[in-house]
């Protein structure tokens, strides 16, 4: 069995499962699009430059959506498969664990891409958000690639024992990160203590890269460094947990 054949087989199956279970994608899209509608069409935020605000908030909602998919749908699905005994069964088969994991990441990436495209299109249709071609592409790419630390959070959630716990915890983390990171309301509008905390949140730097791109700037070095540091920490914890679970 060549590894390529296994990878293709695994990715195809995971994709099929994703398409057949649109529930997860629906929820990752419904809330951000609703928020976008409310805060750019219904509520008057009093922004000086309406066009800039509409583009900024579109990036907030696209990051918010992708972050949710990465944390919640990956985490909960991993727990589900383990609770059902499927993940354990996989370890008895000759499928390398890395291919199994790759299949999961592949499907996540497809879902993230879908979230980005749908939300960008929604922004265009609702407000006629106009960005240059490269701004669309680069902000999309940024959200796609910088979501990796949140996939690591999803993997951590995935090591939990019960679906209920995983679902509750991931919801809490998701919403907490979104609010403190300034995805729902810009961090500048918050009390100074919240601003101080927010600037250390991975979600702030995740959104921050995309906000810079739509302002016509490059993502800051701090965005890269802080996201990379979070990724490293999550991976270390994740490795530690996996080793511990294997020993039991």
């Amino acid at each position: 069995m060549t590894t390529w054949k296994l990878i293709i087989l695994q990715c195809r199956m995971e994709l099929l499962r994703m398409v057949r279970n649109p529930y997860y994608i629906f929820w990752s899209l419904a809330m951000p699009i609703l928020f976008y509608f409310i805060f750019t069409r219904v509520v008057n935020t009093g922004a000086d430059d309406a066009g800039q605000w509409q583009a900024h908030y579109l990036m907030s909602m696209a990051s918010f959506s992708v972050m949710g998919t990465a944390i919640m749908s990956l985490g909960i699905r991993l727990v589900q498969e383990r609770v059902q005994g499927w993940a354990i069964y996989m370890r008895v088969t000759p499928l390398p664990g890395s291919v199994y994991f790759f299949g999961k990441m592949f499907v996540q990436t497809v879902m993230h891409l879908l979230c980005i495209v749908v939300i960008f299109v929604a922004g265009y249709l609702m407000n006629g958000v106009s960005l240059s071609f490269w701004q669309w592409v680069l902000s999309g790419l940024w959200i796609l690639i910088a979501s990796v630390p949140f996939l690591a959070i999803g993997t951590l959630i995935g090591s939990m024992k019960r679906v209920d716990t995983a679902s509750g915890v991931s919801n809490g983390i998701y919403l907490g990160l979104a609010i403190t990171g300034g995805m729902w309301f810009p961090i500048d509008a918050m009390p100074s203590i919240m601003q101080a905390i927010g600037k250390w949140m991975p979600s702030y730097h995740f959104g921050g890269g995309a906000w810079s791109i739509v302002r016509g700037e490059a993502p800051g070095l701090d965005n890269f460094i802080i996201l990379a540091a979070y990724l490293a920490v999550f991976m270390v914890i994740s490795t530690y947990i996996r080793k511990k679970q294997q020993a039991d």
């Binding site: 069995m1 199956m13 099929l16 499962r17 994703m18 057949r20 279970n21 589900q80 498969e81 059902q84 005994g85 499927w86 354990i88 069964y89 008895v92 088969t93 000759p94």
Partner: peptide, 18 residues
Amino acid sequence: VRERLGAMLQEVSVMDGL
């Protein structure tokens, strides 16, 4: 080795969506 063995575990395992 895993290519040469098969197992039926106690826990019934299935995958959803398939």
